[in-house]
């Protein structure tokens, strides 16, 4: 008998008939209502919550009324950090913004798979497109089925994420209600820049991933 059969055989013999905890069936309903109820419906207020939550995790927030304004913000960020190149993850909006910054920045498309990691490891700034945003935690959702690569999200020192305002949801529960089964099972959720507090609990940004995460909320 192999390990699988042995383990499952033991588990079959011990399948529980007595529930461990007593559970009030109305609890989930109450819980969901309380979680939902603590958020406003109005998108502008959600944006404010998102901005606050992002700043609390050392992220930076911008709001742009148009693609042109977003491009101007990207240009300003690049200029202030002396970046002369930006990698774009292939999302339509990010590509659109990138088209408008080509006079000041070298725009680099996702490299071929074979050289991707090596090339991206030397790039300081990337622009990526988030599929959903979560106001409560300032999380960004990147389902892999909509992505060309996740490496720009992780290897660059500064990541600029573009999020459409109508893609902003209240909380994590709402996010998972919106994701399709295919989207949710291959996904990365990003909340703020990479961080560590492993040395005397002193918070340092940019542990192995980006030091800066900038979100531009686009109308």
């Amino acid at each position: 008998m192999n390990a699988r059969e042995q383990i499952l055989g033991r588990l079959k013999a011990i399948s529980m008939t007595d529930p461990i905890s007593t559970y009030d069936d109305g609890l989930k309903h109450r819980l969901d209502a309380a979680w939902d109820g603590s958020f406003p419906d109005e998108s502008r207020r959600l944006a404010g919550l998102f901005a606050d939550a992002l700043e609390a995790v050392s992220g930076e927030f911008y709001s742009a009324a148009s693609v042109e304004e977003a491009a101007e913000i990207v240009g300003r960020i690049a200029h202030s950090s002396d970046y002369n190149a930006i990698v774009v993850d292939g999302g339509d909006m990010a590509d659109n913004i990138a088209l408008r910054v080509t006079d000041t920045l070298q725009v680099i498309a996702i490299p071929e798979a074979a050289q991707r990691s090596e090339v991206l490891a030397d790039i300081h700034c990337s622009m990526v497109e988030a599929h959903w945003g979560v106001a409560e935690t300032a999380s960004l959702a990147f389902p892999y089925i909509h992505a060309v690569s996740t490496q720009p999200h992780f290897l660059a020192e500064t990541v600029i994420a573009i999020l459409k305002r109508d893609r902003l949801l209240a909380h994590l529960g709402a996010l998972f209600n919106h994701l399709s089964p295919e989207e949710m099972k291959n996904l990365v959720l990003v909340t703020g820049p990479s961080r560590t507090a492993d040395i005397e609990k002193i918070l340092i940004l940019g542990a192995h991933g980006p030091k800066r995460l900038i979100v531009i909320l686009l109308d």
Partner: peptide
């Protein structure tokens, strides 16, 4: 409030 990265893996990502 939330961990920085939540990776959900539902298979090899090469085909995606």
């Amino acid at each position: 409030k939330a961990s920085s990265y939540v990776n959900i893996i539902g298979g090899p990502q090469q085909h995606l």
